[in-house]
Amino acid sequence: MEQNLESQINRSDYKILIVDDVVSNVLLLKILLTNEKFQVCTANCGNMCIEQAKAEKPDLILLDVMMPDISGFDTAVILKKDPATAGIPIIFLTALNNPSDLVHGFQVGANDFLTKPFNKEELVVRVMHQIALVAAKRMIEKQNEELRATISNRDKMYSVIAHDLRSPMASIRMVLNLVVSAVSRDQLGPELFDLLDKANRESEECHDLLDNLLKWTKSQTGRLTVVLQDLDLNDIIPGVVDIFEMIAMTKKIKLQYQGTPMKVRADNDMLKTIVRNFMSNAIKFSPEESTIDISLSKEGKFAKVSIRDHGVGIAPERLGDIFRKGETTYGTGGEEGSGLGLQLCADFSRKIGGDVMVESTLGEGSTFSVLIPLIS
Score class of each variant (00 low, 15 high):
Ile372Ser: 00
Glu122Phe: 03
Glu2Ser: 13
Met357Ser: 09
Ser100Trp: 01
Arg154Met: 08
Gly189Phe: 00
Met157Asp: 07
Leu79Met: 07
Gly337Tyr: 12
Leu192Thr: 14
Ile243Cys: 03
Gly300Val: 12
Val358Gln: 03
Val183Tyr: 04
Met270Gly: 00
Ala315Met: 10
Val180Met: 12
Thr361Gln: 15
Phe278Tyr: 14
Pro117Arg: 07
Ser295Asp: 09
Leu17Glu: 00
Leu178Asn: 15
Gly87His: 13
Val23His: 12
Ser306Lys: 10
Asp194Arg: 13
Asn277Tyr: 10
Arg201Thr: 11
Ser24Met: 06
Ile314Cys: 07
Gly331Pro: 09
Leu63Trp: 02
Pro168Lys: 12
Ala149Ser: 09
Phe302Asn: 02
Arg11Ser: 07
Met67Ala: 00
Asn281Lys: 13
Gln343Glu: 15
Asp347Arg: 00
Ile88Lys: 11
Thr328Gln: 15
Gly46Leu: 06
Gly353Pro: 13
Val179Arg: 10
Met67Lys: 07
Thr150Gly: 13
Glu288Ile: 13
Asp321Cys: 09
Asp211Arg: 11
Leu233Trp: 01
His129Glu: 05
Gly320Asp: 03
Asp13Ser: 06
Glu122His: 07
Leu342Arg: 13
Asn277Glu: 14
Thr329Val: 09
Phe368Tyr: 06
Gly313Leu: 09
Gln343Leu: 08
Phe278Ala: 09
Gln343Met: 13
Ser159Arg: 03
Asp347Met: 02
Gly354Arg: 14
Ala282Asp: 06
Arg148Val: 04
Met174Ala: 06
Asp155Leu: 03
Gly353Tyr: 09
Ala132Cys: 13
Arg308His: 03
Asn98Gln: 07
Leu102Trp: 05
Met48Trp: 08
Asp211Thr: 12
Asp232His: 07
Gln229Glu: 07
Leu29Asn: 06
Asn234Met: 09
Ala346Val: 05
Val108Arg: 00
Asp186Phe: 02
Ala282Leu: 11
Ala315His: 05
Met1Ser: 08
Lys156Trp: 02
Lys272Gln: 12
Cys49Phe: 02
Asn25Tyr: 02
Val305Gly: 01
Glu56Leu: 05
Cys49Glu: 01
Ala282Ser: 14
Phe118Cys: 14
Asn277Met: 07
Lys298Cys: 07
Val241Ala: 00
Phe106Met: 03
Ala110Tyr: 08
Met174Glu: 12
Glu122Leu: 15
Asp82Arg: 13
Cys206Gln: 13
Pro261Ala: 14
Arg166Val: 05
Val127Lys: 01
Asn177Glu: 12
Val227Lys: 15
Glu204Gln: 09
Lys30Glu: 01
Asn153Gln: 15
Leu32Val: 09
Val65Gln: 03
Ala95Gln: 08
Ile161Val: 06
Gly341Thr: 06
Gln8Tyr: 06
Met246Ser: 08
Asp355Trp: 00
Leu63Met: 03
Ala135Val: 06
Asp59Lys: 15
